[in-house]
Structure formats: C-alpha cells, structure tokens
C-alpha cells in the first residue's frame, strides 16, 4: 500500500502530502508519525499540505490528533501551505483546527519550530 515518506531534518520531522488522502492512508500517517517522533526524539513536526485540495472533518481530525499526540511527546506540530480554498472551506465546515499551529510555507514553518526550540532554550544543551 501507499506510504507517505517521513523525512528527518535536524531536530524536526517533515512530511509532504502529495497524494489524494483516503482514510486508511491518513490513519497510517498518524501512526507512523507518532512512532517516528517517539523513536527519533524529534522536537517538531512539519506537515506540508500545499498539494492537498480537500480537507474534510476526518482528515482534519487526523491533523489534530497528530498535533495532540506529538505534544504529549514534547514535539510541536506546524501545518504549512494550506490552500485558500481549503482554509475557507474548513471555516465553513466548522473545523477551526484548534491547537494546531500553521505557517504559510515550509520555510516559515521551519522558522517557527526553530523559534520554539530557542525559547525553551534547549538547542545548545543537546549532547
């Protein structure tokens, strides 16, 4: 079956969703990501959804789950690149994605994660 690749970049994990998500695939991504956060001790997760044209309540819930579970494992989650049409639709659907941070693009998302890390002042203390 299809699998969405997870990349490790420094302290962070990055996922770019390039395919049309069906529910099973989204559930697998959730499980894989949480596994990866735990295994690598990553401090941040960046999910690029710029190629995603539909986010419904199921997919929205998965994104929320990923953020919540990563938080428990001490990692921040940033969703980047949401298309305007998707954002407008999500608001109308009634899904504000509370607790999920967002950024305009990958670059800005990385900056945001980096900032968070600096605020907690832990970057240097890594061994």
């Amino acid at each position: 079956m299809d699998k969405i690749p997870i990349l490790k970049i420094g302290h962070f994990l990055m996922v770019a969703i390039q395919v049309d998500l069906y529910d099973r695939l989204a559930l697998n991504l959730e499980a894989d990501l949480v596994q990866a956060v735990s295994k690598t001790g990553a401090r941040g997760v960046l999910i690029d959804i710029s190629a995603v044209s539909i986010v419904d309540s199921f997919m929205g819930r998965i994104l929320g789950n990923i953020a919540g579970m990563s938080k428990v494992l001490d990692a921040d989650t940033v969703i980047v690149g949401m298309q305007p049409a998707v954002a407008i639709t999500l608001v109308e659907l009634g899904l504000p994605l509370k607790g999920v941070q967002t950024a305009l693009n990958v670059e800005k998302g990385m900056e945001l994660l980096q900032q968070k890390l600096q605020i907690t002042g832990e970057e240097e203390s890594e061994e």
Partner: peptide
C-alpha cells in the same frame, strides 16, 4: 471572525 479564522489556518 470567519475571515480571521481562515487567515490563521493559512498561517498568517
């Protein structure tokens, strides 16, 4: 409020 929410979803 909707406009603000949509803007935030985009990361702005």
């Amino acid at each position: 409020i909707k406009t603000v929410s949509a803007t935030r979803l985009m990361g702005a």
